[in-house]
Design a protein around this nucleic acid. Structure first.
Lengths: 352, 352
DNA sequence: GCGTTCTACTATAACGTTATAGTTTCACCT
DNA sequence: AGGTGAAACTATAACGTTATAGTAGAACGC
């Protein structure tokens, strides 16, 4: 990278390392502006930060020149001096069944970060990895000002660790640890409650939830909502705990087929994701059942596939973009110590 | 962040900013190790880099202590001194019709980056943005050692710019600019050729390609493959240039319905993506046509949805994970000036 | 025993930034 | 006139790292 060459010597004898800059004009620094204006480096620095003890005329002149020569602060310098990284690290779970979700989260976060001074750093980990490892790395190297986490568990060691080390973070999802922190969550409990109500209003009396693993808080929330609503409305319910991922849809289909052949099969389904819903539909149709007639399905998704898959599916849309935007706002506020932790829930919408 | 506190003074009077570190032990630096071992900072630095002029015993001792106290190099220090950022920036197109693709790319890249010293930085831009802007930023601030680009155009100004500035980069897709650089690409030309062959072997004689925009190189490749194979096998072909995105599937469906009502409708379709394929199927079925009987569809996808959508769809799987892995390898090699640019194509597989 | 060479280390400066503690200049008050 | 104080600026050091030049001491040749 020309603009950031090793400072000491001119590079060997290689004539022009990448066919790039003729006389390599070198990236401007505060010193450049100082030389041009005849001011000291310190004054230039303070002028650009709009400090109180710099004259208005000077500020104007400095800003003008900075603009003209295309000055951009050197991140490494700032970081070394202040400890401020201007990096936000998204530590993301990279299991296939959450990837579409995550993709949208990445997109919305990085979009929300444009026009801020923060950069997005993505660190994945997979099921076999220790989820603590990326967190420890970030804390130990001080490589980010704040962290965003997803796939939150009720008792989540990452959150305890970050909180104990004073590293600002925000989560997509909630814990049950009583540690106040910024978060955004889809209200999964309301979602399953609404789903139950909808299915019951359609005459269904025996419901099944294709649920995410209950180790995840949102899985628990879904089950809670299901059980509460079913009890309240006096209908039967069960959970089918099958790992929902693209790769084992066939397996899920088989399990659902089996369920439908048992004595008292469900007539209403709820699914928390796109591929789960597709698996349910395929299994039901294989069993000769007709969606909207013999059985009904309520499904939540972040994509827009299900409406095109079968129009009979009752779809609740989750707006992940909203989550990203909020998380960025909440996290930056937390980094800049701006009031108490901001928290928000997305309310599911389902016409009854 | 404790481990990276502004160095000068102790923070105000706030008793404990985040309930974190008691006596804040401060993150170890080379100096810490130097003090412990009684060596100089320079020696410690060189010992950790396994330099030739340091004694074996010393190296061992330094490494041991470094390990013990959990030393991690300060990135800002390294970066300031050497210009090496250890960041790789994925500049990603964030249009909805490529997001699933991109999600997998992000995942595979960041996975390939684990256990390397590089970090992944994601910078999105959308259709209305100037695609050059993130590139200029990276070059001007020297914020990355290398760049990965996707959604490549035949004549792509980003590539000219990066190349002129000597910034290493790798692309997912190809240009036609004759600038040698590392890339990975799915062989879309072969894909449509195979698709045509397959459809012709099924007796289809009038083919239609739901094509990506031909401004993109891969769109052009697909059209080239289609036209060449159709000509070779003596069948008719056309391209339907509709913007394929989740959001306007309804529009695509309508357009395809219209096409089917015109005089000489296609009997074989090729689609380059998941939602396009779903739109085609929906439109055809609305017109009362049966997949696998009246018409056939060959589709490429990176997800695993289509097989579950209609088993009659002839699916070609694209393995985006492969792309990420390769791009990382090729880009890091290029950064470290390791031989000529590495390039690879994914060969589509379709049983005829 | 003196120069030479090698090994294993050290001292120093510099990368770009910013917090702090000055310093200079000038206006104003009594 | 002398002191006070504000306004506007500067000098300095430090953050953690590494490239370079330098040095101390041992080993070796003749």
């Amino acid at each position: 990278m020309d603009s950031n060459q090793p400072p000491d010597r001119v590079e060997k004898q290689e004539p022009d390392s990448h066919g790039s800059g003729r006389g390599l004009p070198k990236r401007p620094t505060l010193k450049t502006i100082a030389t041009i204006t005849g001011l000291s480096i310190a004054t230039v620095s303070r002028a650009l930060k709009d400090a109180a003890d710099i004259g208005e005329a000077t500020k104007l002149r400095v800003r003008e020149i900075a603009n003209e020569i295309g000055y951009r602060p050197n991140r490494a310098g700032v970081r070394l001096r202040t400890g401020k990284t201007n990096v936000i690290c998204l530590v993301m779970s990279a299991e296939s069944h959450v990837m579409n979700h995550t993709a949208q989260l990445i997109y919305s976060i990085s979009t929300a970060l444009r026009n801020t001074s923060y950069h997005l750093n993505v660190t994945p980990y997979s099921a076999d990895d220790d989820p603590m490892e990326p967190i420890r790395y970030i804390v130990e190297t001080g490589s980010a000002d704040g962290v965003i986490l997803n796939q939150i568990k009720p008792e989540d060691p990452r959150i305890r660790y970050l909180s104990e080390h004073g590293v600002p973070f925000a989560t997509h999802g909630r814990t049950e640890m009583g540690i106040a922190h910024p978060y955004f969550d889809f209200d999964n409990e309301s979602f399953t409650e609404l789903g139950v109500e909808k299915l019951v209003s359609l005459g269904r009396r025996n419901l099944a939830l294709l649920s995410p693993p209950p180790e995840q808080t949102y899985g628990k929330h879904m089950i809670d909502g299901l059980v509460a609503a079913a009890k309240r409305l006096g209908v039967d319910c069960r959970t089918l705990e099958l790992v929902t991922s693209d790769s084992n849809m066939t397996e899920i289909e088989a399990a659902i087929s089996r369920t439908m052949q048992e004595p008292n099969p469900p007539d209403g389904f709820i699914s928390g994701g796109t591929s789960g819903a597709m698996a349910i539909v395929n299994a039901l149709e294989n069993e000769g059942l007709q969606l909207g007639k013999d059985v009904d399905l309520v499904a939540k998704e972040a994509l827009h596939f299900l409406v095109h898959f079968r129009k009979e599916i009752i779809v609740v849309q989750e707006n992940v973009g909203q989550a990203g935007t909020f998380l960025v706002k909440a996290l930056t506020a937390s980094i800049e110590k701006d009031g108490p932790p901001q928290q928000d829930l997305e309310v599911p919408v389902l016409d009854l």
